[in-house]
Amino acid sequence: MSVGQVVFWLAAVGAVLGAIGMLSSPNPVHSALFLVFSLFCVAVVYLLMGAEFLAIIQVIVYAGAIMVLFLFVIMLLNLKRDEFGQDRLFRQYPVSYLATAVLGAVLTTAGLAVGLRFSEEPTLLVPADRLANLLFTKYLLPFELASLILLIAMIGVVVMVKRPRGG
C-alpha cells in the first residue's frame, strides 16, 4: 500500500468513527469534539484529492470557527444529557432505522455502479487563484445569493433574539 492509501484509510475510517462517536456519545462536549475530529478527517481526504484550498477552508471555517462557537455555547449552558429529559421521539426509531438502511443501500449501489477506485493522482488540483476567478466570474450569481441568504439569516437571528424595550 502506498503512503497516500494509508493516509486515506486512516482519514476515512477516522471520519466515520468520529461521526459514530458524535451520535453515540452521552456527553454533548464529547459529541462536539467527535464532530471536529470527523470534519478534520474529511479535510485530510480533500487534501489527498489535491484540493488543498478546500481542505484548509474546511479546517478554518468548520473545524475551527463554527465548532468553537458550538463548544462555547454547550459549555456556557453546561448541558448534561439527563437534563434533556425523556426522549420523546422513541416511536420514530424504527422509521429512522428503515430510512438509514434505504439511504445506505442507495449509496452503496451508486458507489458500485460508478466503480470505486483509489486514484494516486490528485484529481481536484485547483489553485486558489483559479477558484477565485471562477467564483467571481462564472459563479458570481450563486456566490452572491449564498452570501445574501447568510446575511438574511444573521439579521433574522438578531431580530428574534432582541427583546422589545421595557418588555
Partner: peptide, 23 residues
C-alpha cells in the same frame, strides 16, 4: 500553496486545547 491559510487554520485549532483544558 496555501501557506498563510495553513497557519491560520492551525491557530484556529489551537483554541481547542485551551478550551478543553479549562472545561
Amino acid at each position: 500553496g496555501i501557506g498563510v491559510l495553513y497557519i491560520l487554520g492551525l491557530a484556529s485549532l489551537g483554541v481547542y486545547g485551551i478550551v478543553l483544558a479549562g472545561w
